[in-house]
């Protein structure tokens, strides 16, 4: 029993491991949120462009008559 090796202090590695795991997951969630926000902005812009294009088309048809 007296010759038994004491448990090594490896808590620094453990903390580093969990920190990296949490940071990676947080970055991934943040990247998804950012991409989603950008896509929503793109969608709004494109819908407005589409709407104004249709309005112009309708106005062109009316003046053609």
């Amino acid at each position: 029993m007296f010759l038994q090796t004491p448990t090594p202090d490896t808590s620094g590695y453990m903390i580093a491991g969990y920190a990296i795991a949490f940071i990676t997951m947080a970055l991934y969630v943040a990247s998804m949120a950012l991409r989603s926000r950008n896509l929503h902005q793109d969608l709004t812009t494109l819908q407005e462009m589409d709407k104004s294009a249709r309005e112009k088309e309708a106005a062109g048809k009316q003046s053609g008559r």
């Binding site: 090796t5 448990t7 090594p8 202090d9 490896t10 808590s11 590695y13 453990m14 491991g17 969990y18 795991a21």
Partner: peptide, 24 residues
């Protein structure tokens, strides 16, 4: 899961706390 890995599970005697990364 973090609580169970870091607090609830006992420390492995040969490797120490680093063994806790095993759960994740």
């Amino acid at each position: 899961s973090t609580y169970l890995a870091l607090v609830f599970a006992p420390t492995e005697l040969v490797m120490g706390d680093v063994q806790r990364v095993f759960y994740f």
